[in-house]
Design a protein around this nucleic acid. Structure first.
Lengths: 104, 104
DNA sequence: CAATGAAATAAGTCCGTGCTTATGTATCTG
DNA sequence: CAGATACATAAGCACGGACTTATTTCATTG
């Protein structure tokens, strides 16, 4: 769950698509393949990378394995980003507004 | 300046080191090489990737080219991250505190 | 206008990684 | 227990990208 693993995991467009799909709701590996023209092993490998990075976590349910976003990975990016917030003072207000919206 | 370029740029540990060094203060390409055991062209190529991603911007000063953090790239990560903030409600307060601290 | 020095580009090599097919493991069901 | 289904692992291939050395571009300075 290092920053290296996280950024490498998100550097692949297919994995970002998977991750963004999981952000909507949890899915098992087969469901995640729908629309993406990749083999079953390819999906399994992508999920392994995302899991190792702490971006996604699994939950076995019988024959299926349900995947969902792992908040830890996101928080880790947030912490990395926080170190450089000094560089976007002009946008802080936007972010504040966004956080306020999310409170409701 | 797509998310793809940004994440790919930050996926390389050498480029993250360069970026983090620039976050401290601006440097020219030669200064950035100090400590890193890579060739001059390698640094030039890394800077080109970071620049294309919008993470860094250049400013020619005579024979030297000074590089500094470009807030646009960081803001772009922030926006990407914001889409998934729903997944770390427990940490929103921490972030708020951080933003409040930065106001002063 | 040489000569020097900083940085970018060219060209080529090597390794990591994302893909594939084939096979193995795990769980449910008849 | 046999078969089917979901997923993981193995092994190999092919391409991208991070490096290198060599060369070019650009600006300064004698």
């Amino acid at each position: 769950m290092t920053h290296d693993q996280i950024f490498k995991a998100l550097a692949d467009p297919t994995r970002r698509t998977i991750f963004e799909r999981l952000a909507t709701s949890g899915h098992n590996a087969s469901e995640l393949r729908e629309g993406l023209s990749i083999s079953q092993p390819a999906m399994s490998q992508h999920l392994a990378v995302l899991r190792a990075a702490g971006l996604v976590r699994e939950q076995r349910q019988g024959r299926f394995v349900n995947y969902e976003v792992d908040p830890d990975g996101l928080a880790s990016i947030g912490e990395w980003l926080a170190k450089y917030r000094a560089y976007w003072p002009a946008r802080i207000d936007d972010l504040k507004t966004l956080l306020k919206d999310m409170d409701q």
